[in-house]
């Protein structure tokens, strides 16, 4: 009898793994790393997580959750509120509609896809930020940041695959 509610709670938490993991990454992202010259050049971990889960487990990463994660990131970063929400929702939208292209393809295809999606979403974010502040930002830091995000994708992909296998695939 006791296994019932506990089992259901466990099931619920398991289902929330992608969203909780992404929220955790948003917080980790904000912790000062103490690495030289790293601060303006931080990879956007939420982008990787939203990309992965929107392709492989879209039912566990609903658009509304993506929107909330983006808002949280905006609030923490001190930037325009809604900017990251817009970027992440766009990534989610592209991934969900194109997931057939990436599903069951090799990791390299997934990485390449992430590069394309991240580049597109970053460009839109850049334009939105320029409009918001009414100035033309130097595109170099933006390029460096998204480049770093793409370059650091493989270890996080590995982490997501592990999380999926451990928590979600077991019956």
């Amino acid at each position: 009898m006791t296994a019932g509610p506990q089992g259901r709670l466990f099931q619920l938490l398991r289902g929330m793994t992608p969203v909780l993991l992404t929220l955790f990454l948003v917080l980790v992202n904000a912790v000062p790393s103490g690495l030289p010259h790293f601060s303006p050049l931080t990879p956007t971990l939420a982008m990787m997580a939203v990309y992965y889960w929107s392709i492989f487990r879209p039912e566990l990463m609903p658009a509304s959750a993506v929107f909330g994660i983006g808002l949280l990131q905006d609030v923490i970063s001190g930037g325009p509120i809604g900017l990251m929400a817009l970027v992440l929702v766009l990534i989610h939208g592209i991934c969900v509609s194109q997931r057939r292209v990436f599903l069951s393809k090799s990791f390299m295809v997934g990485w390449w896809g992430f590069m394309m999606v991240a580049a597109g979403a970053t460009l839109i974010g850049y334009i939105a930020a320029c409009l918001y502040y009414g100035t033309l930002f130097n595109p170099l830091p933006v390029l460096a940041q998204s480049g770093l995000t793409v370059a650091l994708y493989p270890p996080f992909n590995w982490l997501f695959v592990r999380a999926e296998q451990r928590l979600l695939r077991i019956a």
Binding site: N29, A30, V31, P32, S33, S39, P40, T42, T44, I76, S77, G78, G79, P80, L83, A129, Y133, F137, P141, V142, A144, Q145
Partner: peptide, 15 residues
Amino acid sequence: RVVGDSGSAFVRTML
């Protein structure tokens, strides 16, 4: 104590 870094290309703030 500095507990948060903006990590954004558009703003330079700390929490």
